[in-house]
Amino acid sequence: MIRYLLRRLLQTIPVLIGTTLLVYYMVFALPGDPIAALFRDKQPPQSVIDDLRNQYHLDEPFWIQYGAFLVNLLTLNLGNDFTQQPVASTLARIFPVTAMLAVEALIIQAVFGVTFGLIAGLRRGRVFDSTVLVVSLIVIAIPTFVLGFVFQLVFGVRLGWAKPTVGANADWAALVLPATVLGLASFAYVLRLTRASVIENKKADYVLTASAKGLSGPRLVLTHILRNSMIPVVTYLGANLGSLMGGAVVIEGIFNVPGVGNKLYQAVLRGEGPTVVIIVSVLVLVFVVANLLVDLLYAWLDPRIRYDK
């Protein structure tokens, strides 16, 4: 178990180096001088521009820029972004917001997806099942940003149930609307996965045995059917946490959430290599850790799975 964990953690190192290198290069290759662009047509004295270029190593070739970035990263000296704000404090501010948004979305999709999927699976072919299938298909078909705008207009502006945008003071309550939209997109997948898995397990030998022995009701459904149906769902949810955080770029834009997505968008527009790469690196870490947790959860869900061999 420990060896497995260590091996998995060591694997993240090449992943991180690979992604940072790739992302750094992509931002580096963006055309245009980012410092000149900061000032647009009101260009400051050349010494001001050169000082900034020097500060961000923009006057160096790619490998030196990237090397300086890696050294800073390893010594945890994240430096300042183009708006002269320390990147470290920016990260400390934006990541909790997006994490809150992603977790809230994950809870929404897990709770609703599993519940509806379980009911639909148990009552296969009935009205509830068919309705849920059609509705989930529609939800899958609608792009997230369309859903975002519709929810914003209907619940935020017309009905006034929630504030249409988040802005400052993002808390669990303020994030309900964007989290729902974010969760809805994968909610349909969770539902369909659960349903298919439940249908399959309903016919499994151990379930037949259990019910032949007279077991029924919640104990049969929860312990025998649901728990065994959870393996594909948990894999999906775990993998999804990472994409929920990354996918928040669009949703955060629509709902003006001061999180990772919005910051990333601005940093890309400004051609701020270091900031973009740092944010992406943290996202990669989240992704890797979430996947690791999923793999560990398997053992709990299915005792047949063992890691050390």
């Binding site: 502006v157 945008t165 834009g253």
Partner: peptide
């Protein structure tokens, strides 16, 4: 001053007096 990265959400906020 409320900060927006895009004017779209601000327009929605204006319409709902936020």
């Amino acid at each position: 001053f409320k900060f927006y990265t895009e004017p779209g959400p601000a327009y929605i906020d204006l319409q709902s007096d936020n």
